[in-house]
């Protein structure tokens, strides 16, 4: 299921603006990798290059290689739509489809991609909701609108929706920044469970969160506003938070930054 991501020499542009420059890293399967760094350093942009969502933004384009196991996502003839089925994504703000019920939201990825039998869908929806630790809370209101849930529940619904299509990799762009501490805890626990099945990459502004959930941590930084963001270092989370090899990383995580 889970696949390794191998990025080499990746540049991403918005129009003529170089947003991130020359990033190379390896993301191990069945692990959680956290991206930390100041705002505007290109964490989210980089995350979005990993499932070709970057090019959805007008003017967005990418140079370099992203290998998913042995296939280059930016190789010739690769269909971005198929890439996104392999590499799922959860966004910063919970965004369930407002016209759909809880059930339809979870089934959306499958239904919009092809025909499924009702019984098959029922199973997948239940499995995904259980996987997202949401089943017990919503099993009696599967046909109610998804936007009627609380913020934390909505975000778990979005995770359920993402894992329902059985991706190999799950990208999370600050999934807890709009949530209260209790919902955050629920999602962090969930990440711990999900990493047994998926490769998980999470962007976070909360360094304690990075320390709690991730196995490896990557620190991004930019020299100045208007300069491209760069990967400063990537290492085991423990090492990054105790004894990083670059001074800038230590400054950032100890709060002496800028």
């Amino acid at each position: 299921m889970a696949k390794r991501i191998d990025v080499s020499g990746l540049n991403a542009y918005y129009g003529s603006f170089l947003a991130i420059e020359d990033i190379s890293m390896t993301v191990e399967p069945r692990s959680v990798t956290a991206f930390i760094g100041p705002s505007g350093c290109g964490k989210s942009t980089f995350l979005r290059t990993l499932n070709r969502m970057h090019e959805v933004t007008p003017g967005g384009r990418v140079e370099g290689k992203v290998m998913l196991d042995d296939e280059n996502l930016y190789g010739a003839g690769i269909d971005p739509v198929s890439v996104r089925r392999e590499v799922g994504m959860v966004f910063q703000r919970p965004n369930p489809f407002p016209t759909m019920s809880v059930y339809d939201n979870v089934a959306a990825g499958l239904r919009l991609n092809g025909k499924y039998k009702k019984s098959e869908l029922d199973d997948i929806v239940e499995k995904s909701l259980r996987g997202a630790n949401l089943w017990n809370e919503v099993k009696d209101r599967l046909n109610k609108p998804g936007s009627g849930l609380s913020g934390g529940q909505q975000q778990r619904l979005c995770i359920a929706r993402a894992i329902a299509v059985e991706p190999n990799v799950l990208l999370m762009d600050e999934p807890c920044s709009a949530l209260d501490p209790i919902s955050t805890l629920a999602i962090e626990d969930l990440i711990g469970e999900l990493k047994e099945r998926f490769t998980i990459v999470i962007v976070t502004h909360n360094m304690q969160q990075a320390a709690r959930v991730s196995d490896r941590t990557a620190f991004f930084n930019l020299a100045a506003v208007g300069q491209p963001g760069k990967l400063i270092e990537i290492d085991d989370t423990e090492r990054i938070f105790s004894n990083p090899s670059v001074q800038a990383t230590e400054d950032y995580i100890s709060g002496r930054f800028g």
Binding site: G88, F97, L112
Partner: peptide, 24 residues
């Protein structure tokens, strides 16, 4: 965000428009 959510599920753009954007 709704368009992106749908695209990120691996739904083609035309289906996203038809099934997510228009119903909304």
């Amino acid at each position: 965000e709704l368009r992106e959510a749908s695209l990120a599920l691996g739904v083609p753009k035309w289906r996203t428009i038809l099934k997510v954007v228009l119903p909304t």
